[in-house]
Amino acid sequence: MYKQCKAILIISLLITNVAFATSKLSTPDIDDIEYPDEEEHSQSEIELGKTLFFDTRLSSNQKQSCATCHNPDLGFGDGLKTSLGTMGEHVGRNAPHLYNLAWGAIFFWDGRAATLEEQALGPIAAPGEMNLPLTELIPRLAKVDFYRKQFSDIYDDGLTLNNVGRAIAAFERTIISTNSPFDKYIAGDKSAMSPAAIAGMKLFEGKARCVKCHDGANFTDDSFHNIGVSDVAADQGRGGIIKSASFNGAFKTPGLRNTLLTAPYMHDGSEATLEDVIRFYNMGGKHKQNLSNLILPLNLTENEILELIAFLGALTAHVQIERPQIP
């Protein structure tokens, strides 16, 4: 029935792709980055975003910048279980790393931001974080010649809230890690990973069930799972955002690139080391209420735990960020 005209144009390894239950572990493709309006960022926009990222003017008392909690020297985290706001109080969640967010589909532990641009403004205004009302942000930046000129040069509408978000997001899209021993290994350099790491990779994809959530080029499905970290009542996570009880206690799967650098782990920073994380999964999580059916006891041996750590270490490729001069 008119199928002859219905030219759905596919031949493909789409077929091969769908044979896998999860996305293949791979190296991210720069061509897969989706830029707003499909326009790559200019170098000047990236530099502007970087300057904003490190500028403490973005917090109410001018003591904290984005980089305070997302410190490049600490795996774009802060090393704390839960971050401190600019007024000194804990914010309740661990600072997520920023590696390879250029490929991200949803942002924050609870996925409350749909774009990197939207995400970038969130912590600035959050009372428990940088605590700067956005109505005060633009007048504050407008007092700085550098910002007035740069925003005017880069954007048609100059210094606006929207453009502050765009600039910071532009910088964040450059925090890219794609040259780890794992990437070299899958590119053909079979000496790039140790035998332990290779064994760990097999466990990662098999017995340890990690790829059920940590799949694809950035080792995340960008989905939300309750893995039994904490009491659901303590933090509803995704469930609190979309008002769906089935997502209570579910948090976004973090990407694992450079995970060696991003301790402590979990949305509440409750696991201090990668070994702790693997032992947590090995017991099938701690809190069983609303636990994802993907979480099961793993029966990993001590040696297998070490092999998994070796593999996670093989996902490390430092991203060097030179701190800008703040105007």
Partner: peptide, 19 residues
């Protein structure tokens, strides 16, 4: 992988002979 995905013109011989 998707480099193998190509465009398939579904005109088909039987389409051509249809009308």
């Amino acid at each position: 992988m998707t480099k193998f995905k190509s465009i398939l013109m579904v005109t088909g011989l039987y389409t051509l002979s249809f009308l």
